[in-house]
Nucleic acid binder design. Structure first.
Lengths: 163, 163
DNA sequence: ATCGATAGTTGGTGTTCCCAACGTTGGTGC
DNA sequence: GCACCAACGTTGGGAACACCAACTATCGAT
């Protein structure tokens, strides 16, 4: 076999075309959703990291601030967080003084979780950063497109009609 | 303190309202995207499990079938998969006889990855299940809403104009 | 008093994403 | 020819999430 017989063959994408995902994936909602969620996590994850928390910590603080004290189980159901993960999250938040946790005197199985002043302040800072992250994430979309995307996602997630 | 003093107090959501996420989250794109992606993974994950593969295995088979043989690095760039993860995935696929992997004689750093007959057949079965999963995932949306959602996600992900 | 259901905790698993380091090979400049 | 840097594949590991199983304590109802 002569030297020039094994010249470079360009497999896959053509020379100049920037490498793009398969067309099939580019129109596959489940794949697009995962990619978009990952992009979103890049933005909000950076925002969270600056405050030293993670996704769940933010949502728990948010739920407490918006709707008042709640039990861990309630929080978990509303936020879609597993009981075991919730236990770890509230332990973190309590350790940082962002929430207070005490047994419910009316039902001693439950922990009543309450946001502290420091928790509310942390949430305020977080919320600002998170909003900025949304802005970056949604940069390629126009304002009406953003609201439409949000609407469609909410509709996709809302409980399937169970009559 | 008398007995009836510590009656049950309902923290959080009201009595009959099904427990819903905070309003703030319900209009937060990054949160909605994560929830939607998670729902999607429930559907497609089940589809993949039935064939004994995971997400990346599917996308790799798809890319190979759609665009022909490619190196691992090329695949990784097109699919957004890290080099190290790609090595594991192609090892799995090779072990199952779904792809063939050999050194590129024209560039001996590269592995040329090619889908086998069995790989194409597995992809066909997978693709069918994945399509069914999309159907379930998108059930709450009308046909035009589905295409609009897909369009918006693709627009969100497409490379920001870098002139 | 008993029994089933719920709450919180602990411990563990699987998946995905990401990073660092290493040896090999290719391409470039000298 | 040689030195140097870049790219490739591989190994190992860590972080974040989602999820599950088991256990104790408590509640509610029978």
């Amino acid at each position: 076999m002569k030297r020039w017989d094994r010249q470079r063959i360009r497999y896959g994408s053509s020379v100049d075309a920037p490498e793009q995902p398969p067309q099939r994936l580019r129109q596959l909602p489940s794949w697009l959703l995962n990619r978009a969620a990952n992009a979103a996590n890049g933005h909000v994850g950076a925002a969270f990291a600056q405050e030293g928390v993670r996704k769940h910590h933010f949502t728990v603080l948010l739920a407490l601030t918006e709707s008042g004290p709640a039990s861990q189980a309630d929080l978990g159901r509303r936020l879609g967080i597993d009981r075991s993960d919730m236990a770890a999250v509230v332990a973190d938040l309590e350790g940082d003084g962002l929430i207070a946790r005490e047994r419910d005197p009316g039902d001693r199985r439950r922990n009543v979780v309450t946001a502290t002043e420091a928790g509310a302040a942390a949430l305020a800072r977080l919320d600002e950063r998170v909003s900025a992250a949304q802005e970056q994430l949604l940069a390629p979309l126009s304002a009406p497109e953003r609201t439409e995307l949000t609407r469609l996602l909410r509709r996709l997630l809302d409980p399937p009609p169970t009559p």
